[in-house]
Design a protein around this nucleic acid. Sequence first.
DNA 1: AATGAATGAGCCTTCATTCAT
DNA 2: AATGAATGAAGGCTCATTCAT
Lengths: 193, 193, 193, 193
Amino acid sequence: MAAILEAAAQILEAGGLAAFTTNAVAERAGVSIGTLYQYFADKNAVLHTLAERELQAALARVARALKGEIDSSVEGRVRAMVRAIVGAFGGRLRARRAVVQAVLSQGPSDLLAPIAAFINRAGAHVGEQRIFTNLDQEQIFVVSRALMGTIRAAVLEEQPFFKSRAFEDELVRLLLSYLGAVTEAKRASTAPG
Amino acid sequence: MAAILEAAAQILEAGGLAAFTTNAVAERAGVSIGTLYQYFADKNAVLHTLAERELQAALARVARALKGEIDSSVEGRVRAMVRAIVGAFGGRLRARRAVVQAVLSQGPSDLLAPIAAFINRAGAHVGEQRIFTNLDQEQIFVVSRALMGTIRAAVLEEQPFFKSRAFEDELVRLLLSYLGAVTEAKRASTAPG
Amino acid sequence: MAAILEAAAQILEAGGLAAFTTNAVAERAGVSIGTLYQYFADKNAVLHTLAERELQAALARVARALKGEIDSSVEGRVRAMVRAIVGAFGGRLRARRAVVQAVLSQGPSDLLAPIAAFINRAGAHVGEQRIFTNLDQEQIFVVSRALMGTIRAAVLEEQPFFKSRAFEDELVRLLLSYLGAVTEAKRASTAPG
Amino acid sequence: MAAILEAAAQILEAGGLAAFTTNAVAERAGVSIGTLYQYFADKNAVLHTLAERELQAALARVARALKGEIDSSVEGRVRAMVRAIVGAFGGRLRARRAVVQAVLSQGPSDLLAPIAAFINRAGAHVGEQRIFTNLDQEQIFVVSRALMGTIRAAVLEEQPFFKSRAFEDELVRLLLSYLGAVTEAKRASTAPG
DNA sequence: AATGAATGAGCCTTCATTCAT
DNA sequence: AATGAATGAAGGCTCATTCAT
C-alpha cells in the first residue's frame, strides 16, 4: 500500500492529474493493477488516502516546528507557523496541487477540518496570552482561510516569490494586524469606560 | 456561442467538471457537436472562454458597486468591494468553482491578471488617500488572495455564515487592518526622523 | 472549377491525401464549400477530375516531346519517350502521388487505358520500322507497365536517382533489350529455316 | 494478435482501406476494441505489422520456390522466381493492395528493403555465374520494380492473362533480356581489348 | 449561382474496472 | 493474495454534405 501511494505521489508530481491513471500508478508501484484494486476500492480512494497522508504529514511538520520554536512572542510564534506551513509545501508541489485539486473537485469534504482544528488548537496555546482564543467562529475561519488561501494561491499560481522572505513578512503582517485589530475591537467593546 | 457558453455553465453547475463533456454541452445548448466545434477550437477553449466571461462579469459587478458607493471613506469603499465580491458568488457556485479549478489546473494562466490590475486600479482611486497605491507585488498578491481565498473557502465549505454581516465585517477588518499596517510600515521607513 | 482543381492540386502537394478535405480545397480556392458542391458531385469527383487532367497533361507533354525528337533511331525515340515521361513527373510530385493513390485505391479504373493506347500508338509510329507493332497483347502490357511501374515506384519511394542520367539509361536499356528479344524471338519462329 | 491481423486482412480484402477501422477489425476478430489496443499502439501499427507479415510470407514463398527448383540454369531460376511471385498474389488481392498502398502512402518506409536485399541475394547465388551480382543501385531498382510493377498492374487491372503461361514467358523474357544486356555492357566496358 | 452555418455519423483512443487463473 | 488480459462505455474530435438564405 505504501508503495502504491508513493507511486501515486510520484506520478502526480511528474505528470499531474492527467497522468494519474490506475494503470500508471500500479506499474510505477511495481504491482499489478489487480493488486491495486485489492487495496483501494477505486481510483478515488487512492487519491483520497494520499490526500489524508499528505495532510497529516504537513500538520505534523507544522506542529513540530511550533514546538521547537524558542521565540515565544506572538510574532515569533506566528512567524514560525507561517514558515512551517509554507515549508510544508516544499517538495512535490505538483503532487500536492493535484491532490488538493482532485479532492476539492469532489465537493466539500471534511479533509479541511483538521486544519481548522489545528489552527484553533495552536492558537489557543500560543504562550499564555491565548490570542487566538476568544476568536469567534467567523474570525477563526477568516484567519485560517486567509492564510491558507494565500499560500494555496501562491502554490497554484507558481509564484516565484513563494518562499521569499518578503512573502513571509507579508503573511505575518496579515495575521498580526488582523489579530491586533480583533483584539483592539474586543477590548473597546468590553471595556468602553 | 452564447447558448453554448450558457449550456456549459449549466452543465458545470449541475455536474461539475466530470459532467463537462463536449457532447453534453452541445446537447444542452441544443446544437450539434459539430456546431460547437465551429465556435470553439476544442473543449478547453469552451472552458477558457467561460472563465473569461465570468471573470469579466464579476469584475464589472464589483466596479459598478464601487462606483455607486456613496460612502467614499476607505472603509466604505472596501466594504462595498467586499460585499460586491461576496455577492458575485451568488449563483452557479459549482460552475464558477469548476471553471476556476479547470483553468488553474492548466498551469499559471494570465486569467488572474485582470483581478490584480483591478485591485490595483481600484485602490489607487479610493478617495484621494491612494491607500492601495504603492503596494508592492507581494502585497497586492496577499491582499487579493487572502480576500478571494477566504471567500472561496467559505463557498466551497458551504459555510452558513457566508452572506452574514458578521462575516463581511471580518473580511473588511482583515483588509483594513492589513492595509493600515502596510501604510504604517511604509511611513515609518520613509520618514524615520 | 479551374480554381478548385488548382487548389486541390496545391493542397495535395502540400499536405498529401490527409490534408485533402473538401473544406480545405474550397477555402484555398477562395470559394465557399457550397460552390464546390455545385461543380463536383462529391469529394471523389474532385480527385477523379484532377487525375484526368493531370494525365492528359502528362500525355500531351510526352507526345509533344516525341514529335519534336530529331534522332529518329529506335534508341533515340525510346530515350525521348522515357525522358518525357520521367519529366512529366516533374513538379507536384506529392499531388500526383496522392492522385494516383487515391484513384487506384478505388479499384481498377479506366484511367490507365489512355496510357496503354498511347504507347501502342506511339510504338506504331516509331519511324518506319514499326518495332512496337506486332507486339501481342501481353507484350504491350509488359513493356508499358514495366516502364510505368518502375517510374511510379521511383516517384512513390522518392528515389534520389529519379531524373538522373543513370536511371534513364537503365530504363532505356530495359525497353530496348526487351524489344530486341521479342523481335529476335519472332524472327526465329517466323523463319526457322 | 494473430486473430486481429487475420481480421484486418479480411476487412481489407472485403472493403479496402475505407472499411479498415479499428472497431471493425476488433469486432471481426471477436475481441473488444480495448484488446486490440493492448496489442497494437494504434491503427497504423496494425497495418504496418500486417504489411510486414505479408511481405515475409511472400518472400518466404519465393525463397522456398527457388530452393526447390531443380533447373538451376539462369532461366530456370528466373522463371521459378517469376512464377512464385505471381503465385504469391493468389488470394487476398485487395488486402495486399490496401496494405501496400497504406504503407507507401506514409512516405518511403524501409519495408521494401527486404525485397531489394532478397533479389540481390538471390541473384548472387544463381549458379556460379552470379549474374545479378555487380548490379548497381539503379539496376537493382529497375529489375525489381519493373517486375513487381508489371505484376502489380496486372493484378490491379485484373488482367485475364495474369496467370497464363504467355504472361509468365514475357516476364521471364523481360528479366533475362535486361540482365543479359547489363552483363554484356559490363563485359564490354571491362575488357575492351 | 453562391454562401456558409449547421449537421451528425462515426472515427480513434483511453482507462477504470473485472475476473478467471 | 496476486496477476494481467480483456472489457467496453464513453470521450474528443473530424469532415463530407445539406439547405435555407
